[in-house]
């Protein structure tokens, strides 16, 4: 076979595409057909099965906020996934309560997905409800006023534009909220 691919133009093309498509199809088309949780929105009302709650589609305002998140490239420094690593559940936790790990069914309405690859700033998968609007406004104006040592750029044009700012905060407050994971329900607005 190797010899033939060496001299025969058509055979070389067919073989390199054929071999490529085996792995290509098995790893892209097959998995969502096998694992149904990739497409089914999270929903659980039985506390014995873990956190309860329901994933709701984004509102128009939240989608506007999400578009700003994409436009400003927030995802290049902030991941949105609490991984199956103990430290991640502690860091995403809040006030002594560990966060549940992220599951595929929490992201069904996300396009583009914002899982991220680099964590220059903290993970945001459970940030929803942790900080109130005033905190976010100050933080967008200049992150270092609230977090000395931060390297996040300031976003004065978001803080100054009321419509954009409201949309942005509305989106951030949804993050991680599908799972109702805080026992005291102490979410900030």
């Amino acid at each position: 076979m190797l010899q033939k691919a060496d001299t025969n133009f058509g055979f070389a093309i067919a073989a390199s595409l054929g071999i490529f498509f085996i792995g290509g199809i098995l790893t892209t088309v097959a998995p969502p057909l096998i694992d149904k949780t990739w497409a089914k929105p999270f929903s659980n009302d039985d506390p014995s099965k873990g956190p309860t709650g329901q994933l709701k589609p984004y509102t128009e305002q939240e989608l506007k906020g999400r578009a700003i998140y994409v436009r400003e490239g927030c995802t290049y420094c902030h991941t949105q996934q609490t991984r199956t690593i103990l430290a991640d559940t502690k860091r995403s936790g809040w006030r002594g309560v560990d966060s549940p790990v992220s599951t595929p069914d929490e992201f069904v309405y996300d396009a583009p997905h914002l899982f991220g690859t680099k964590r220059t700033g903290p993970d945001l998968s459970r940030v929803g409800g942790k900080y109130d609007q005033q905190w976010h406004r100050t933080h967008f104006r200049n992150p270092r006023d609230l977090v000395p040592g931060s390297v996040m750029p300031p976003f004065p044009w978001i803080a100054a534009n009321e419509e954009e700012f409201q949309a942005m905060v509305a989106y951030l407050q949804t993050l991680g909220r599908a799972k109702n994971w805080r026992p005291d329900n102490d979410y900030e607005k």
């Binding site: 691919a5 490529f20 996934q81 595929p104 929490e106 899982f115």
Partner: peptide, 28 residues
């Protein structure tokens, strides 16, 4: 030739290693 044909076969399977420990099926 061995290098080329093994590259053609092996590389395309590895995408999910960008989501290790993340919310993607363990078997993948």
């Amino acid at each position: 030739m061995i290098g080329f044909w093994s590259l053609a076969f092996v590389y395309v399977w590895t995408g999910a290693h960008h989501m290790l420990h993340g919310p993607i099926s363990q078997w993948l």
